[in-house]
Structure formats: C-alpha cells, structure tokens
Design a binder for these strands. Structure first.
Lengths: 212, 212
DNA sequence: ATGATATTAACCGAAGCGGTCAAAGGAGGT
DNA sequence: ACCTCCTTTGACCGCTTCGGTTAATATCAT
C-alpha cells in the first residue's frame, strides 16, 4: 500500500476504479481479486504486491471513497444560495461531477454499509462518524420556499427530484457494465440537460407569477 | 420440474421467490444453489430433487417470470383511458401490484438480459420476442395532451414520472436485502401514496384552468 | 403394513478462491 | 556492458466451496 502511490497515476486510477466497481457490484465476499485484476488490466500478483491481502485493498478503497465524497460535499458554494431551484441546481451539478469522475463510488459505499461479513464490520462505526460530519441532507431545510404557490408542496418537489436522479442513476447502473467511460460521461451530460429542463418547467409552473 | 407443481403452493412460492431474488442480486454464475435453498428454507437436495440442475431451475424461473409479467401488462383496462394522469395512474398501480406480489421479478429479468454466461445466451432471443409483444411503452403516445398548459412538455413529464418510479425502486433495491416481505409491501404502499400525491400536484399546476 | 413421493445429511470430484514464490522485465547509475 | 532496485508476472499451493449424487429417512394415502 505504500508502494501503490508511486505508480503512474493512470494505473492507480485503473485499479481504484476496477476495485470499487467490482466490490460495488458483488459485495466483499463475492468479489474476487482475479476479477478486479482482470478489469484493471494487471495481473493478480500485482494486486497482492501493492496490497498484502484482499481486505487491505478493500479498506484502502473504503478510505479513498470516504475522503473523496467528503471533499466533494463539503463545498461552501452550495450553502450560500437560498433560492430553491438555484440551490438544487448547484448541489446536483456538484454531485454529478463527483460521480462522473468515479461512477461506482456511491454504490460501493452503500454496499459497504450493508455488508454482513465480519471482516468489515468493525469499520462501520468509523464510517458512520464520518458521514455524520456531512450535513448534505440538512441543507435544504433552511431554503426559501415562500416563492411557491400554495398548491405546491416543497417537500414533495424535493423528494420528486431526488427520486428522479436516483432513477436516472439506476438506469445507468443497469447498462453500465458494457459501456465505455466515454459513453458514461455522455450519459451524465444528457442527464444534466434533462434535469435543467425539468427544473425550468417546474419553476415556471410552481412559482408565484411575481417571482418569475 | 414435473414434481414441483404437486407441492404446497406456499412452498412453491418460497422457492420461486428465493430463486428469483438470489439470481436477481448475484446473477447466474455467482448464485449458489445452497444460498437459494437456505433462503427458501429447504435443503439443497430438495432443489436438486425438483430441478435436475441449476440451469433447469433458472430456466423455470425465467419462464415463470415472463408469463407473470405478460399477464399483468396485457390488461386492457390501461388502454381505454385517455386522460394523461388517469392513464398513468392506472398503469402504475397495475405494475405496482405485480411487483408487490413478486418484488424481485423485474430485477431478475433485467439481470438475465445482461447475462454474459454462455448457458443462458440462447434464451435471450425468445425473451426479446416475448417482450416485443408487450406494447406497454407505446401506450402513452396516443394520449390526450391538449389539456396541458403551453409551458409544459408532456414528454418531459412522462420521463420525469418514469425516472421517479425507477428511483424509488432503486432505493428499495439497495435496502431490500435485509427487509422482510412485509416491510417491502409497506414500502410499495408508501410509494403509491407518494406517487398519487405527486400526480395530484402536477395535475393542478400543469393543466389549463378550464380542465380542473 | 406397503408402496410411492418428498426430504435430508453426508458425501464426492472438480473448480476456483486467496495468497506465495521464483524468475523475469525495465529504468537508472557506474 | 554490468549491477541494483523496484515492479510485474505465470505457475503453483492448500483450502474452501461449488454443483451434483447417494443412500437413508420422513410423510402419507391406501
């Protein structure tokens, strides 16, 4: 693991992406070092050279994932904006950029959270502590919702947009296995376009006329 | 497989649900007969008594899944309604009922579609033929969209609702592994409630006043 | 009791897993 | 050219676990 950071950055990326992806899809136990090695286009021995055991690799990826997600979320620019749609727009674009860089990150962490194998159990506490530090979900509670018509429930709008993005991600997820990185990027681009269109449509119809 | 239909219906259900669920989560190769047996609360030998091989069981589940999905979708009641929101409402409730009965069905079929193991490859053609018979997605093209305001794009609304349900399903999916069937049912109930609320909200704000 | 059907624990050979090791590249200094 | 050090790899090993078999047992209608 010390030797790992001396590698070409591109090869590091390959191994990290391959590892997260395989662990994200199959979970700890049903992920095999041979599979990760194959996807990363290195030999299995190379993995064992840089990481002494499978668990070592897993924990390294876990650490990497948690650091990256915290870096991307703890950006102050999101918290300054108070207009509902502007804020949602900025936050989503942020999240999108992070996921675009490492598509399997979220799924990897979620899968970890639901792991039942005893090897990884001890590390969940640490994970919970770190994710508490992220106040991402609380951010929307202090938003200005006075611009909405009375017939609109802001919480429902929030939920609707959230589920929409989850759905988009899920659709990508199903098809991602045989997509190139290029195609996945284009998919995210299309997603942002669709999302902005929806935001615009909702804004026109949900805001009181005087705020348009 | 002939002996299987003589069993108590409840035990048949247990085995079908366990099988679809395990195959849906792990795919063909990484699903183990021992795992399915454990989840179905029978012994591994029992599975091999009713189904000669793992592939036999898989193909039986595939057949069952395709028949059930076709039965639920080919219901004429969906096609008669022409009002946008009414039609979406009916179609979604239909789908929901089917998934509620067998939560892993869709995921099982999707997973099958993306299988790469040579054993199941030959059966994909048959699957494609059958799914072509289902005209579910075409149904919305002849809907009456004249009631919408000019600022609303019906296609975008349709897409938004579709992604929303996909998102809800994806969220369930992530947590489903350690949920009881009872809890999953309640989850679907909540989903229907949320969905109807969203439909109502959209209808009020997207339809021209004279149609409310 | 008897025969047919349904279920299981114990078992088997083969495959595939995590992990090791000796040998071989490859980049740089001399 | 040679040696040195770091990196990579194919071949290999012991062990687990898989799909599948078998023989013994449980269940039940007649």
């Amino acid at each position: 693991m010390q030797t790992f950071h001396n590698l070409d950055e591109s090869k590091q990326e390959q191994i990290i992406n391959a590892g997260m992806r395989v662990f994200a899809i199959h979970g700890y136990k049903k992920s095999y070092m041979s599979e990760i090695a194959h996807l990363a286009e290195v030999s299995k021995s190379t993995l064992f050279y840089h990481f002494k055991t499978k668990l070592d690799l897993y924990l390294f990826l876990l650490d990497t994932a948690m650091n990256e997600i915290m870096d991307s979320v703890n950006d102050e620019s999101v918290y300054s904006e108070k207009d509902f749609f502007e804020c949602v727009k900025i936050a989503t674009e942020h999240k999108m950029q992070a996921l675009r860089k490492r598509p399997s990150l979220m799924k990897f962490l979620t899968k970890f959270y639901f792991e039942t194998v005893p090897e990884v159990e001890p590390y969940k506490l640490e994970y919970l502590a770190k994710s508490d530090q992220m106040r991402s979900r609380l951010v929307f509670e202090e938003l200005d919702v006075s611009k909405f018509k009375e017939t609109v429930d802001p919480k429902l709008v929030m939920d609707m947009l959230h589920k929409w993005t989850e759905g988009y991600m899920a659709i990508l997820d199903k098809n991602a296995d045989d997509k190139t990185d290029q195609e996945i990027s284009e998919f995210y681009d299309q997603m942002i376009v669709d999302f902005l269109n929806i935001l615009a449509m909702l804004r026109i119809n949900f805001y009181k006329p005087e705020y348009l």
